[in-house]
């Protein structure tokens, strides 16, 4: 299968401190890749280099290449706004806007001018909410505030919001870490479902989650990529001793 994302020799610095060392990896299209590793290992930092979210940090600096669909996103003159539209993101803590449920999903459609008419906008919002498995729960209160939803619902709303702008890649930064088991299960089912249309990169601190949802897993430690393998292989017979220690719970 074709590679959607190709990262080669990526180094990342916060001011003088180096946070990522020489990361190289390839992400095939329409697969789920899980990033695991102990807290502070750099997995979230790495995720945020894939849509240049780290640009918001003034002292952050990147060296190396991230190539998405054949284009280096760190090349000078890159349209970061267009990049972020193509590479959507769901955050650790759900972050709905202080608007209605409908407007939350419609926001990305509107700013990117995707819709052709009012009816088209409505249809797109409905489809996104369907795809995020939220439609049945909110269809009767689309115009109420998004803050009235439960935590799990808010997170699925944020997924719907990301889907509505028709991205090709979705980055998820520990999307279920603040949720209860039932809400977590719903998100996991959703991730597997979404794989049909999207390439998904998910950061998780939960190894069972990684093994349940992902096709491939990358294990990070101290800013280095230790091992990157098919998930099945990684959890049954990892190549690296450190990976085995981590997975079996000997540290972390």
């Amino acid at each position: 299968m074709e590679n959607k994302i190709r990262v080669s020799n990526l180094n990342f610095f916060y001011g003088k401190a180096q946070a990522l060392y020489d990361i190289s990896l390839e992400v095939p299209e329409r697969e789920v890749i899980a990033f695991i590793g102990p807290s502070g290992c750099g997995k979230s930092t790495f995720l945020r280099t894939l849509n240049r979210m780290n640009d918001t940090i003034p002292i952050a600096r990147v060296a190396g290449d991230v190539i998405i669909d054949g284009e280096n996103i760190y090349a000078p003159g890159t349209d970061v706004v267009a990049l972020r539209r193509k590479v959507g993101m769901v955050f650790q803590k759900s972050n709905p806007f202080p608007k209605s449920i409908f407007e939350n999903v419609a926001y990305g459609i509107r700013i990117n001018g995707i819709h052709t008419s009012k009816t088209d906008l409505n249809e797109r919002v409905e489809k996104a909410l369907h795809d995020a498995a939220l439609w049945n729960e909110v269809k009767d209160r689309l115009n109420t505030s998004a803050f009235g939803l439960s935590g799990g619902q808010q997170q699925r709303l944020c997924i719907a919001r990301a889907l509505a702008v028709q991205p090709e890649v979705i980055l998820m930064d520990e999307p279920a870490s603040a949720l209860d088991p039932i809400a977590t299960q719903k998100i996991e089912e959703l991730v597997v479902e979404l794989k049909r249309d999207y390439t998904i990169v998910i950061v998780t601190h939960n190894m069972h989650q990684a093994s349940r949802v992902s096709d491939r897993t990358a294990f990070f430690m101290l800013g280095k990529l230790i091992e990157y393998n098919k998930t099945e292989k990684m959890f049954q017979n990892p190549d690296d001793r450190m990976t085995e220690d981590y997975i079996t719970g000997r540290f972390g």
């Binding site: 918001t56 993101m89 972050n95 926001y107």
Partner: peptide
């Protein structure tokens, strides 16, 4: 997080300030 949410959707900086941050 609210600001990042809008940026991640492909909103230009001024849109983030104008229709997310200011209303909030």
């Amino acid at each position: 997080s609210m600001r990042e949410g809008a940026l991640a959707l492909g909103a230009p900086q001024w849109r983030v300030s104008w229709n997310i941050v200011l209303p909030a």
